[in-house]
Amino acid sequence: MAAPPSIADRLFWPVVLGGAASLWFGPRALAAAGAVVAVILLHRLGRGRRFRRLVRAIAAHHGETLALRRRQECYLDPYDNLIADGWLRERDYFVARTVAPRLERAGYGDLLASRRDEVLAIVEEAASRPEPEPAEADLPDDGIAYERFCAALLERAGWHARATRASGDQGADVIAECDGTRLVVQCKRYARPVGNGAVQEVVAARSYWSADLAAVVSNAGFTPSARKLAAATDVRLLHHDDLATLAPRPSDRRR
């Protein structure tokens, strides 16, 4: 995409034509040309403000998703260091695939490189909204209680859900049904991203329980290998916050 005209390009013809007109029509023509130049300058000077306003609007529109992805992709390692590598990749992806195309279409694409830090700060602000209740500190500490917690969230969303027994579940911690759709869930209360072992288990559970949908639910994020395997096996990777609004679709039911 070609760069937008510079301020000098925009002012060239108004100045030239205004100067020429003033020779024929006097001070009034010169004043009119001056007014045109002033409008162009004011519009140009406000471009940065409009750029920021557009970025804030884009980030705010996706704020809930950004906040959820930030919670999923940030975690504390065993040494109490905040590991945010996954979130930083997610943030860059959002800027490249969502923000940049909108800026290009609106004529602000040339500003993105020079104002990238400003854009990232706006996205961080939008993603830093407080976590909805229940807070992480209020989550059950042990795995079995977390399974029951996830089943209760599904019940609120309209599913008939039950946590399975600790043994003999064949990879399904929760089994839920709604409108003829059966869902099997692996629940992982972890302090670090969940690996692809959980995806493999829930794939087996989907077959064993003849389920339509399979999901891994965690309070933490997921490793890149888990995401890759989930995409290949049609497994949903969810944060427990997603369960409160999870609803089956007609296309989810296996034929």
Rank of each mutant, 00 (worst) to 15 (best):
Glu131Gln: 14
Pro132Phe: 12
Pro132Ser: 10
Pro132Arg: 02
Pro134Phe: 09
Pro134Leu: 04
Ala135Asn: 04
Glu136Met: 10
Glu136Val: 15
Asp138Thr: 12
Leu139Cys: 07
Leu139Ser: 09
Leu139Arg: 12
Leu139His: 09
Pro140Ala: 04
Pro140Leu: 03
Pro140Val: 00
Asp141Ser: 13
Asp142Phe: 10
Asp142Ser: 08
Asp142Trp: 09
Asp142Gly: 11
Gly143His: 08
Gly143Ser: 13
Ile144Lys: 11
Ala145Cys: 14
Ala145Ser: 15
Glu147Met: 09
Glu147His: 12
Arg148Glu: 15
Phe149Ile: 01
Cys150Arg: 00
Ala151Ile: 03
Ala152Glu: 15
Ala152Tyr: 07
Leu154Gln: 04
Glu155Gln: 13
Arg156Gln: 15
Ala157Thr: 07
Trp159Gly: 11
Trp159Met: 07
His160Leu: 02
Ala161Gln: 04
Arg162Trp: 00
Arg162Ala: 15
Arg162Met: 01
Arg162His: 14
Arg162Asp: 11
Thr164Trp: 05
Thr164Ile: 05
Thr164Asn: 09
Thr164Cys: 03
Arg165Cys: 00
Arg165Leu: 03
Arg165Thr: 10
Ala166Asn: 01
Asp169Tyr: 10
Asp169Ser: 12
Gln170Trp: 13
Ala172Ser: 00
Asp173Gln: 07
Val174Pro: 08
Ala176Asp: 01
Ala176Val: 12
Glu177Val: 15
Cys178Glu: 03
Cys178Pro: 00
Cys178Asn: 12
Asp179Ala: 13
Asp179Met: 00
Arg182Met: 10
Arg182Ser: 15
Arg182Ala: 05
Leu183Asn: 06
Leu183Thr: 03
Leu183Ala: 05
Val184Arg: 01
Val185Pro: 10
Gln186Ile: 06
Lys188Glu: 02
Tyr190Trp: 14
Ala191His: 14
Ala191Phe: 12
Arg192Ile: 00
Gly195Glu: 12
Gly195Phe: 11
Gly197Phe: 00
Gly197Pro: 01
Ala198Gln: 10
Ala198Leu: 07
Ala198Gly: 04
Ala198His: 11
Val199Thr: 04
Val199His: 06
Val199Lys: 03
Gln200Ile: 04
Gln200Lys: 13
Gln200Cys: 10
Gln200Leu: 15
Val202Ala: 05
Val202Asp: 06
Val203Leu: 07
Val203Asn: 02
Val203Gly: 01
Val203Cys: 06
Ala204Ile: 03
Ala204Cys: 15
Ala204Gln: 10
Arg206Ser: 05
Ser207Pro: 00
Ser207Lys: 09
Tyr208Gln: 02
Ser210Gln: 14
Ser210Val: 09
Ala211Ile: 02
Asp212Leu: 01
Ala214Tyr: 08
Ala214His: 05
Ala214Cys: 00
Ala215Thr: 07
Ala215Lys: 03
Ala220Pro: 00
Ala220Ile: 02
Ala220Phe: 06
Phe222Gly: 01
Phe222Tyr: 12
Pro224Lys: 02
Pro224Asp: 11
Ser225Met: 05
Ser225Trp: 02
Ala226Met: 12
Ala226His: 05
Lys228Thr: 12
Lys228Glu: 15
Lys228Gly: 13
Leu229Ser: 05
Ala230Ser: 14
Ala231Pro: 08
Ala231Lys: 09
Ala231His: 12
Thr233Ser: 15
Thr233Met: 14
Thr233Lys: 11
